[in-house]
């Protein structure tokens, strides 16, 4: 083992944080980069299902809240791509390259953003439970060893917590509403339940890996999913909603939630770009880039000077 790697391993073992200019093994840089770019892509793509609801949100208050959530998510993407750019600099990869990879279907983003949001209740479920799931993942990542990511995650998590409150408020309002509104809410939950279980990825990956030892990853997929189920299943049931999984139950012996097979084949199909709305959403992203190209151009040095 060379000296640099040895010193790096020792720093990690002491619980130290790694800054952008510090020595890091290439494998560490690549692992961080892959994770962080996927996160940035997901923030950007995650804004799209809700963006569709800005013109249709019921009332000015809700419209402003959805608008500001979308703005937050785009802001998250901006901050995270910035962290990724510094990591990718030695490879000569720019933000533009990352956005090209995304638009041309070469990069991953979160499975949940490939599903449609047909009703207002979907907006509530997304903001409450998808942002809740994101907060599980990102909350664990606050302990990442890569300092620039940890710093930006503190701000992001604080804002995600607001999104969750906004979602909770929509869900509580619908749950206390007319039978029609409650039915709409139940339908949305039923639609989103499987994608939500998929959100954390399949169980059983090895935590005995460089990624875990180096604190690029903090919690396993299943640990995160269990954290999510522990928090949200009781709340969902308290609202009198049914979780669409006959096998879902809390196992006293293991202290874990047991759930029915959520069809991991479907998960892999979506991750590989075969989601219901993967292409539609990516075309929307492409369209945004074309339509807003003039803003980007206006902000280029040669124009702005």
């Amino acid at each position: 083992m060379d000296m640099d790697l040895q010193a790096f391993e020792a720093r990690i073992a002491r619980g130290e944080l790694i800054e952008a200019d510090d020595f890091m093994p290439d494998a560490y840089r690549r692992q961080c980069l892959r994770l962080i770019v996927t996160h940035a892509n997901s923030e950007l793509m995650g804004a799209l299902p809700e963006r569709e609801w800005i013109p249709r949100a019921p009332g000015l208050g809700r419209k402003l809240a959805v608008l500001s959530k979308v703005q937050d998510e785009i802001g998250h993407a901006q901050m995270i791509y910035r962290v990724a750019e510094d990591l990718a600099a030695p490879y000569g990869i720019s933000r533009q390259d990352m956005l090209d990879d995304l638009i041309e279907g070469r990069a991953k983003f979160h499975n949940v953003f490939s599903y449609p949001a047909p009703t207002w209740a979907d907006v509530g479920i997304i903001a409450w439970l998808v942002d809740g799931a994101a907060l599980e993942t990102q909350g664990a990542l606050l302990k990442t060893s890569y300092a620039p990511y940890a710093r930006i995650l503190r701000r992001i998590c604080a804002e995600e917590a607001v999104h969750l409150k906004h979602g909770e408020d929509i869900v509580l309002t619908l749950a206390a509403g007319t039978p029609g509104q409650r039915a709409m809410l139940q339908d949305a939950l039923t639609r989103w339940w499987r994608p939500l279980l998929h959100f954390f990825g399949p169980p059983g990956e090895s935590t005995n890996s460089d990624a875990f030892r180096w604190r690029v990853r903090i919690a396993s997929n299943e640990e995160l999913r269990q954290g999510f189920l522990r928090k949200y299943v009781p709340k969902i049931r308290r609202l009198g909603l049914a979780v669409p999984d006959a096998e879902l139950r809390f196992d006293e012996a293991t202290g874990k939630w047991l759930y029915g097979d959520p069809d991991w084949d479907e998960f892999w199909r979506v991750v590989k770009g075969g989601g219901l709305q993967t292409n539609e959403r990516l075309s929307l992203r492409r369209l945004s880039r074309e339509e807003h190209g003039w803003v980007v151009a206006a902000m280029r040095p040669e124009t702005a000077a």
Binding site: Q78, M79, R82, E85, D86, R95, R151, I152, R155, M299, R300, P301, T303, A304, A305
Partner: peptide, 11 residues
């Protein structure tokens, strides 16, 4: 607070 990319200090 963080960092960003821009064409000059005003932007």
């Amino acid at each position: 607070a963080g960092s960003l990319q821009a064409a000059g200090p005003d932007l």
